[in-house]
Design a protein around this nucleic acid. Sequence first.
DNA 1: GTATGGG
DNA 2: CCCATACAACGCGGT
DNA 3: ACCGCG
Length: 250
Amino acid sequence: MGGKDFRLTHLDKLYFPEPGYTKRDLLAYYLGVAEFILPFLKDRPLVLHRFPNGAAGESFYQKDIGEGAPEWVHTFVIPSESSGRDTRYYVCDDLATLLHLVNLGCIEQHPWPSRIDSLEKPDYVFFDLDPTEGYEFDTIVAVARRFLKELDAIGLRAFVKTSGSRGIHLWLPLERRYSYEQVRTFAEIVARVVHDAMPEETTLERMVDKRPKGSISLDYLQNSFGKPLATVYTARPRPSATVATPLSPA
DNA sequence: GTATGGG
DNA sequence: CCCATACAACGCGGT
DNA sequence: ACCGCG
């Protein structure tokens, strides 16, 4: 693969026991959608969420490529504010890297919403509509439509995808002119407008156990430096092996 | 998932 | 040889 | 400073 050697291991390991999908199946999936997912990974630091023993097993997040990564992988070094050390992030720019990551047990792909040539300036803002226990899917749809309506009212057209778990993500491309803080503030304003319009159906409460049952949590805080978002076509570590899927808002 | 070290 | 263990994130906001 | 959250 372009002289980029790597080894695919444990191909028969069951990654999704319920439907019976193995790591080989997951690799085949990503091979099939590579041409669609790679453009969303290009030039972005990637946060890995690894499940070496499948979707139901123990998992961990990984930012630094660590030891033993192929020498040809593209990386981007970002100083960690808290630890003071440098972190060498993966940047997945090609199929070989994508499949290498899947081999590590990286079921999900979580790129930053900013690109390495302008890290401090996100090129999209997103809204994570996350349902609480006992929700109705119709409620999420109604809340998503309200977001689209409010954004349309100020001349903005957002894109929609299923998160692949239970919720819906909306995202809006931005010129790279605004800081994370500015983008987060904008997201908060829009979320408050929607919450004021649908106070029963939505919540801005951060504490999980204080959210009204059945309400949709509007999480705008994730629009922050170093905080990634599960991207389009990424597989999710759910028992049924769901996938984040772009939707037409029609 | 992989590298390492002990039994 | 095989098993056990170590290791693999961090920013934001509320208190 | 620490904790909950994603």
